[in-house]
């Protein structure tokens, strides 16, 4: 499988990652090797096989509809890089014309 820089850049963008030029070079090389390795599973005929999404069937989990104490706003905000008036603060996301 041939992986080029454009492919790496495309998937990096989807994953909210950005690479320097050197990183992209290295990642293109490694990513190609890894994909060639994992593509080994295509040797198998899997047409009649069910996919495993859960290794065992659990009973549906239900609980009484009761309120419980949470950690509270103060603790929830304690690790945030930026806050204001009890909210998480982020850079402006709406463009004003």
């Amino acid at each position: 499988m041939n992986i080029d820089r454009q492919t790496v850049e495309h998937y990096a963008k989807l994953a909210n990652l950005a690479f320097s030029k050197e990183e992209t070079e290295r990642m293109t090389h490694d990513f190609g090797n890894i994909l060639n390795y994992v593509a080994k599973i295509s040797e198998l005929d899997l047409s009649d096989v069910e996919a495993t999404t859960h290794v065992f069937e659990n009973r549906p989990l239900v609980r009484p509809d009761e309120t419980a104490e949470g950690i509270g706003a103060k603790a929830a905000l304690a690790n945030a890089p930026d806050t204001e008036a009890g909210h998480f603060l982020v850079p402006k996301m709406i463009k004003v014309r």
């Binding site: 994992v38 599973i41 295509s42 198998l44 899997l46 096989v49 069910e50 996919a51 495993t52 999404t53 290794v55």
Partner: peptide
């Protein structure tokens, strides 16, 4: 297909 390989291993 990876999830199917998982079934095979199980």
């Amino acid at each position: 297909n990876a999830q199917k390989v998982r079934t095979k291993i199980i």
